[in-house]
């Protein structure tokens, strides 16, 4: 179980950022008392517009940043006080490429396996399985710089999963991917879910949520506005589709802003 309990995250804006955001406030509340739970064997989707606080929430969960208040627990372990222990059980991925061009997939897999304390034999088995699953085999000794964007993304996923974590946190999983790679990623996430992994994704693409997520949380201005299965969310808000719910909530948020 991964639980997020009433977390709040505020950033201090630089003058440049204040200018970009067109605000006089030096503080920006990125995540505002957010709570939800994600379970193993399900895909939980955080749906929200750009700047809603999805990435900040996922970064808090993945221990890269700490929430100002509130607690996050992964398998009962607190992310703020036992970050290293939590990192053993999570993988964090983003759609932005995060690989060093100078290395080969093979080297990076070994490197991150070593950092995650994965035994040699286990590492070899994981590598064989993941490289085979993502079609990386024939490129394992090619430098990242010489690979296609789609292949880089697949390698990023394989490397993030070296330690076979219980929870996979994926920020915008299909962003910028071609159709084939996006399908590979989606299929793999579904496979992982069926294998009992807990998956949390953030996205602003409704079709991804509809295709992938067992439960969804709609986040606007850092706060959770709706949560549940897609059917339950539609039912609660009296709309036929998730798209209608989303736009209605966005409209409400805009109304609150102008009020």
């Amino acid at each position: 179980m991964l639980s997020v309990e009433d977390i709040k995250k505020t950033f201090t804006l630089s003058k440049k950022q204040m200018k970009i955001e067109r605000t006089n406030d030096k503080k920006k509340v990125a995540v505002d008392h957010l709570s939800f739970e994600a379970r193993r064997g399900e895909i939980y989707g955080l749906l929200g517009p750009n700047g809603a606080g999805k990435t900040t929430a996922l970064r808090c969960i993945s221990t890269l940043i700490k929430p100002d208040v509130g607690t996050i627990k992964v398998n009962g372990v607190d992310t703020t006080h036992h970050a290293a222990k939590v990192r053993e059980n999570i993988a964090f991925l983003t759609s932005e490429l995060k690989l060093d061009d100078h290395f080969t997939p093979n080297y990076l897999f070994r490197y991150f396996s070593a950092l995650h304390n994965v035994e040699e034999q286990t590492m070899l088995e994981r590598k064989k399985m993941l490289f085979n699953r993502f079609g990386i085999d024939q490129f394992q000794e090619v430098k990242i710089a010489d690979l296609s964007t789609g292949m880089k993304q697949k390698i990023s996923i394989a490397i993030a999963l070296v330690h076979d974590p219980d929870f996979i946190i994926f920020d915008e999983p299909t962003n910028g991917l071609d159709i084939l790679t996006a399908k590979t990623v989606i299929d793999y996430l579904l496979e992982m879910r069926d294998a009992g992994k807990g998956i949390i994704i953030s996205t602003h693409i409704l079709s991804v949520v509809e295709k992938l997520c067992d439960r969804v949380g709609i986040i606007i201005d850092g706060a959770l506005k709706a949560e549940g299965t897609i059917d339950a969310v539609c039912q609660t808000h009296n709309h036929d589709t998730l798209e209608d719910v989303f736009f209605a909530l966005m409209q409400d948020a805009k109304g609150d802003e102008h009020a």
């Binding site: 890269l64 053993e88 964090f92 983003t94 995060k98 690989l99 060093d100 061009d101 950092l115 304390n117």
Partner: peptide
């Protein structure tokens, strides 16, 4: 360079101190 490329996040999310 690790910050610029974004590879630092991948490194910092490992259990390494």
């Amino acid at each position: 360079g690790e910050k610029e490329r974004g590879t630092i996040a991948t490194l910092l999310v490992t259990p390494v101190q």
